[in-house]
Design a protein around this nucleic acid. Structure first.
Lengths: 149, 149
DNA sequence: GCTGAATAAAAATTCAAT
DNA sequence: ATTGAATTTTTATTCAGC
């Protein structure tokens, strides 16, 4: 496996899984039959400018470079401005209504952004349902979304 | 000195100086007569969610949390959309013209954002002069600014 | 150039004290 | 609740091999 491919994979992993330390990368890659050491991951992280973020939930996790996240946020912001209809919470759930045909795109972006307070996210044609980690977190998430509009 | 004050100070420092490691914080605080250990800085960083960013220039430096930077970027974006007139480069210099009275605010924001490629920044009434680290970096900075508009 | 093994360096945590 | 000293854990780098 070439370095470029690995970087690509790391980029995916960091969005899908919660990577708390470099050894997590090593293990996941090992499970996939890719044999690589922490030293290499450290170098990859430096090159890709991944960052280790102290998370609200107490631990740490690796994340995409701030710039990239900024770009994702910009996209969300644009889409929210264009297609947002309404938002509401109930318990730990948040539902965002959009103009028809826009929810899926929004859901994908939200998943990519991988917000702390989010547990899961599914989207249909004109609504995105976000399941948060708690009732409080749902509030926080709602505020976050509103701030985009 | 209370923890809150220290956090406030760290927030300033991280924007003004280039902090490469936690010991840098310790030293700077010591110079100011504040006696604190790396352990405490580590805890502060966790609470404040400061991140260690692999910088383009090869090293690492601590930075404000992505969200905060995002907010700054949003402000810059808004101001650029409102008050931007023109931008040009010459050697390692970039000059941004704004509507009268807006340059100072823009300059302040740009300084806060503390971009890699920037060496220094001064602003008057309707123009901001940014001195970059090289001719190439000036190009990069120019593109960055244009992308806000 | 890229990598792993070993090591150094840096950062996080534990533990005890306040 | 906050901290420093000591320690552990994690991360970065060096060095040798390819």
């Amino acid at each position: 496996m070439k370095k470029k491919e690995r970087h690509h994979l790391l980029r995916q992993l960091v969005q899908q899984e919660t990577i708390q330390k470099q050894e997590d990368f090593v293990e996941i890659l090992l499970n996939r039959g890719i044999d690589i050491t922490q030293a290499t991951i450290s170098r990859d992280i430096k090159e890709m400018q991944l960052i280790k973020v102290p998370s609200q939930s107490g631990g740490y996790h690796y994340s995409l470079p701030p710039e990239m996240n900024f770009n994702i946020s910009k996209k969300i912001s644009r889409l929210m401005k264009d297609a947002f209809v309404s938002i509401d919470t109930q318990k730990e759930f948040v539902i965002i209504k959009t103009l028809p045909g826009n929810a899926f795109a929004l859901g994908t972006l939200i998943e990519t952004a991988n917000y702390e307070e989010m547990f899961g996210c599914i989207s249909g044609d004109n609504s995105v349902l976000i399941i948060c980690r708690s009732e409080d977190q749902a509030e926080i998430f709602q505020r976050r979304m509103i701030s985009f509009v």
